[in-house]
Design a protein around this nucleic acid. Structure first.
Length: 322
DNA sequence: CATTCGTCCTGATAGC
DNA sequence: TGCTATCAGGACGAAT
């Protein structure tokens, strides 16, 4: 399940393989993977073919590659670099992968879209989008100016533009432009549960179900805690916990940047790590065990998904008692 | 306006 | 053995 660290690993890996390369041709093998491109698969392919990839940029879990048309590339006549107008957007959803591979490699079982790239120093010349469950997809989006410092998302050279389809996504807690004060102000105004807020990509981005549970556990907060009762120190503790969990995962997933396969399999990178909360139903809470208490992790349905908590160190809030 | 809910998908697994 | 039911969950648009 790709969350921010997994998507960032993909971005870092991908940029080395595709920056500066031209898309020669496009095969859409399953139109459902481009359903967010409303003008259809042919239009999608037409937008990409002949265009050159300038960069790989991320905002939250959205990843995009700004494109320049081949004709527009020699912009030296004006002495200015042509600003890219469009980008190809990728969202991995639940099971999406972006793989850089040689054309001789057999098609993956769930290969959905193939981009053939211009030859470059013997690098593999296909970028493939593989997606078993089709929650993810590719589509073309326009680029619009940002008000400040670019898209963020740890991009190495942020452009002062953001993909329109990602412009409603908030900055993530690792983004240098993330504002804790702005986050806390908005959080405090909400009338909802804490985990629901954490998963709202318009409030703070990059957090999915697994990291939400891990961060809440680390901060000793319950998922149903009303957001308008959260004190500033608690919110700060939570954001710090999110950062720590994400940085740990990033470090764990960042070992295969130079692999031929861009590692986008969040599961493989993640589940090797020791989880403190997610998936630990019935097992002892690692923190309580350390202080001599016995507390078994609990699994509950919340928002149609599983939430894992320790009943001792993450007590459920009592009505109106905050 | 903010918030919540239903929908999109497939494969692994449990239960009969 | 082979069938069906259940579960996993990110993001969007509809409903409240």
């Amino acid at each position: 399940m790709p969350e921010l660290p997994e998507v960032e690993v993909v971005r870092r890996g991908l940029v080395n393989w595709v920056r500066g390369r031209t898309i020669i041709s496009v095969d859409v093998l399953d139109p459902r993977s481009v359903r967010r491109h409303l003008l259809g698969p042919e239009d999608f392919a037409g937008n990409l073919e002949g265009a050159t990839v300038l960069d790989v940029v991320r905002r939250g879990k959205f990843l995009w590659m700004p494109l320049v048309e081949a004709q527009a590339a020699p912009a030296s006549a004006s002495g200015q670099n042509t600003q890219p107008a469009v980008a190809v957007m990728a969202h991995l959803g639940m099971s999406g992968q972006l793989l850089v591979e040689d054309a001789a490699e057999p098609d993956e079982n769930h290969l959905k879209v193939r981009l053939r790239l211009s030859p470059s120093n013997g690098m593999p010349n296909e970028l493939r989008f593989v997606d078993q469950r089709i929650f993810g997809g590719l589509f073309v989006t326009s680029l619009v100016p940002t008000d400040d410092g670019g898209p963020g998302g740890l991009a190495e050279e942020p452009l002062p533009m953001i993909a329109e389809e990602a412009s409603h996504i908030a900055r993530d807690p690792l983004d240098p432009h993330f504002s804790f004060d702005a986050f806390y102000r908005r959080l405090h105004l909400r009338k909802t549960g804490l985990k629901r807020a954490l998963l709202d990509q318009g409030l703070v981005s990059g957090i999915g179900n697994i990291y939400a549970d891990e961060a809440l556990w680390k901060a000793r907060l319950h998922y149903a805690r009303p957001t308008d009762t959260l004190r500033k120190a608690e919110a700060l503790r939570l954001i710090e916990a999110v950062r720590e969990v994400m940085l740990d995962a990033l470090a764990a997933g960042g070992t295969s940047f130079d692999s031929l396969y861009v590692n986008v399999n969040g599961v493989s990178g993640y589940f090797d790590r020791s989880l403190n909360a997610y998936g630990r139903e019935g097992q002892e809470c690692k923190r309580c065990a350390g202080v001599g208490l016995v507390s078994l992790m609990k699994r509950e349905q919340f928002m149609n998904r599983s939430s894992y908590t320790c009943p001792v160190c993450q007590p459920r809030p009592r009505n109106g008692r905050w």
